[in-house]
Design a protein around this nucleic acid. Structure first.
Lengths: 219, 219
DNA sequence: CTCCTTTTGTTGAAAATTCAACAGACTTTC
DNA sequence: GAAAGTCTGTTGAATTTTCAACAAAAGGAG
């Protein structure tokens, strides 16, 4: 586990926990590590939701795919970020989303019941973990609000611009590198890919933005 | 505060806390109660996000209104449910949503910093409150996923049917009473009101559902 | 009961999205 | 380096949504 220490120290789940304690804590939590190839389905919709995952390297996406095969990308997590925690903490019986490897990645799994239900004296940091989960979930809720602010717009142009402006504000720069290719961006914005490409073309012509692949510049 | 005891006992924030402790705890938390008329803006977008609210009577909605006046309804809370907790827990400086009174209502406010930052030995139930907040936020995240499952559909018909089927499953009945009027349902589904009315009309004609005001029956 | 306000359903036209198909650019693999 | 596969931009037609306007229905106030 030691090789992942630098990543884990940045994980919001372990805020306020010294690295010496972190390493002794991991076995108690039943932490395991797995590696996945790109596109691999790490957690499948409909299966049990016992574990939360921590991205150690690479990145993962949470996606919903409906009856007709339409995909929605809900979020993307990179190194030291958590996924699946909401479902494990809410103790639902089956996952409402899938989690897939966006690129080759390594993931640490922790059985959430070890955090939620273990005797609270077993480990002095137990309460800290619950506090950290609470903080993390509050932050994730904010991200959902932002996503809804984006997808609630009625036109492709407005969705794209709202998304880019939010990212720009977050990065503090007019230059934005997005973690999506065109199809993924369309699945995040919930619009048609070809219509999205066309709209990006128009915005370029109008001098509102510049774009090369997944790098955007607001003008 | 005593008159609200029955409501507060059902509030997820106070799970596992006996009523005798609940009453002594409220002053420590700095709880205050206010009443509002229908349509009143209880919390305004852009203002501070220090407090979480508990609905004591009536109901409230969290809404986002964009630059052009388009409204999105994000959620609705009725008696003993919590609102604003995500923003207070995430300690954001300004609210990204407004909360309005959907009908005349009474609300209890608690300064969230009293839960997050008070010395953890001050009150034996402090940890329980944080645990409860964590649970509540996990549940809210699930609701957001459901909402996204609904609004990610591309047509008014699909959005409406997905919403009704989810509600039907939740209630365990083909008969559904929704907490929205037509305009509000449109703002929740993120579609045009008149188009929604037309679509409901078509679905009736096709014998797929029956509908009287805010009562729906799936056939 | 009547008047006034709000809500709902309908309509048609304009605007936007979706869909399918294709060609060029770019990557990856062997 | 060639071939296969993937990603992206473009097109036009069909579908759907949005928008504005209006009238009927329902609800509330006096």
């Amino acid at each position: 586990m030691k090789k992942y220490l630098e990543i884990l120290k940045k994980c919001p789940l372990f805020d306020g926990i010294g690295e010496e304690h972190l390493l002794t804590m991991l076995p108690c939590l039943g932490a395991t590590v797995s590696a996945y190839d790109k596109k691999y389905t790490i957690l499948m919709e409909g299966t049990a939701a016992k574990y939360l995952g921590i991205v150690l390297s690479g990145s993962v996406q949470t996606v919903q795919v409906d009856f007709y095969g339409n995909r929605s990308i809900l979020s993307e997590m990179t190194a030291s970020q958590i996924f699946g925690e909401a479902f494990a903490c809410a103790e639902v019986s089956s996952l409402p989303v899938s989690v897939i490897a966006n690129e080759p990645c390594e993931v640490m799994f922790i059985d959430c019941s070890h955090i939620l239900h273990t005797c609270s004296n077993h480990c002095g940091f137990h309460q800290q973990l619950i506090y950290n989960l609470m903080k993390d979930l509050a932050t994730k809720t904010l991200l959902f609000h932002q996503r809804i602010e984006v997808t609630s717009k009625r036109t492709t142009r407005e969705k794209l611009m709202t998304y880019l402006l939010l990212q720009s504000k977050k990065e503090g720069s007019r230059k934005i590198v997005i973690p999506f290719d065109r199809q993924e961006l369309a699945d995040y914005l919930e619009v048609d890919r070809s219509g999205l490409s066309a709209e990006i073309g128009k915005l370029k012509k109008e001098g509102i933005l510049d774009c090369d692949k997944n790098r955007f510049v607001l003008l």
